[in-house]
Computed example of a mutant assay.
Amino acid sequence: MSARNLSFPAAQQAQIIRAHQRDIIHVSSLKEQTENILRSWLGSRWLTRYDKEVELLVKLGYLGLTTGRAIQTLGEEYTNIWSYSALSQSPRVRAGLILLPTIPAYLLARLGPSVASRSDRLKTLVRAAVVSLEVVSEVNLAIFYLRGSYYELVRRVLGVPHISGIPENPHTRPPSYSLLGVLIFIRLVHRLIAFLRSRSRKSIITEKRSANANPEEPHIDARPVSSLLNVTDPQSDPAPSAEDDDLTILDVASLPPDVRAGRICTLCLEERTATCVTECGHLFDWNCIYGWGREKSECPLCRQSLDLTRLLPIYNL
């Protein structure tokens, strides 16, 4: 048989799904190892502040060393499939396969909250962009379960399918995932109905409020209520020094050096600010233990269960 007559079958749904799951496992493992190294070098406080950038760099590195070089990812190699189309060898298409799944999600996660806090209109636009991306991704996933190609939305847009290196067996029937596609469409219809009902309910409430609106905004301690509701994320700002910490009533500057040496957070290895205590009795910075608790629900010292809602602020330690 000549090379011109060689043809490869399209990858089966099970192969594509297993490859995608395998890639997620490898990226998660690589991210965890990277975080452990950076935590030991730079501390938990730095890692909590730049966790989204670390995740982005890990994904870019993984895809850049595989898809960017026009070779299989570890998941594709595991299931013996690879990307192929008339455009798959183009550097622009490979760059799209790397950047489109990572950069927009990072920008929405990192810049979305800060942009949305500037005005209600920007907040509405950011929220609409996130919801629209989720809905389009679910529609693409439902079509994949029904039709069997283009598991990722980016591949459908760029026209880069998967092919398989395993010959088709005419005596076996591949598993069907059509039921999952139908269920996803049912969920989308339910989501649409709930959205329309909430819009109609909000319009009614808005009309009632406008009829009984008070032209003067209420104030608490000479501060408008709207300013009290727009609370910023404590992770977004650098931690203040111990002398400038408003959540410590001690005169830190007057403490003896040996006493201040004991006021060290075991996570960031810096002097504690905004001290809080866990249920097991260990003291940490609020930002440090909060960032740790979002990743692991256990105390970093004794490994007991950690509940972020049960943290107790300590103002005099």
Rank of each mutant, 00 (worst) to 15 (best):
Asn214Gln: 13
Leu196Asp: 13
Ile204Thr: 13
Asn214Ala: 09
Ile186Met: 08
Ile163Ala: 03
Glu207Met: 11
Asn169Glu: 07
Phe195Gln: 11
Leu228Glu: 09
Lys202Glu: 11
Pro167Ile: 06
Ala213Arg: 14
Arg191Trp: 03
Leu158Ser: 04
Glu168Ile: 14
Glu134Gln: 08
Tyr145Met: 05
Glu216Ala: 11
Ile193Met: 09
Pro218Lys: 04
Glu152Gly: 11
Val189Gln: 05
Pro174Thr: 09
Phe144His: 03
Val225Trp: 07
Leu133Ser: 09
Leu153Cys: 12
Leu133His: 06
Val154Arg: 14
Val157Ser: 11
Leu179Asn: 09
Val131Thr: 14
Tyr151Ile: 05
Gly148Pro: 00
Glu217Gly: 02
Leu158Pro: 02
Leu192His: 09
Asn230Ile: 10
Arg127Lys: 12
Glu138Ser: 07
Tyr177Gly: 08
Thr206Phe: 12
Pro175Ala: 07
Leu183Gln: 10
Ile186Glu: 04
Phe144Met: 00
Gly159His: 01
Leu183Lys: 03
Glu138Ile: 10
His171Gly: 04
Arg197Ser: 09
Tyr145Thr: 00
Arg199Leu: 13
Val135Leu: 02
Val154Pro: 10
Glu138Trp: 05
Ile163Met: 04
Pro167His: 04
Leu133Thr: 06
Phe144Lys: 01
Leu153Pro: 02
Lys208His: 15
Arg156Thr: 07
Glu138Asp: 13
Ala194Trp: 15
Gly159Trp: 03
Phe144Gln: 02
Arg187Thr: 08
Ser203Tyr: 14
Val136Ser: 10
Val139Phe: 06
Val157Leu: 15
Val135Met: 02
Leu153Trp: 15
Leu196Gly: 11
Arg155Met: 08
Pro224Phe: 06
Tyr145Trp: 07
Gly181Leu: 00
Arg223Asp: 04
Arg127Tyr: 07
Val131Cys: 06
Glu168Arg: 15
His190Trp: 14
Glu207Lys: 13
Ser178Ile: 13
Arg201Gly: 09
Arg155Val: 04
Tyr150Ser: 00
Pro167Phe: 05
Ser210Lys: 13
Glu138Ala: 14
Pro215Trp: 03
His190Ile: 10
Leu133Phe: 04
Arg223Ser: 09
Ser178Trp: 05
Val154His: 14
Pro218Val: 05
Pro167Tyr: 05
His219Arg: 09
Leu158Phe: 14
Ser132Ala: 12
Leu180Gln: 03
Glu216Trp: 06
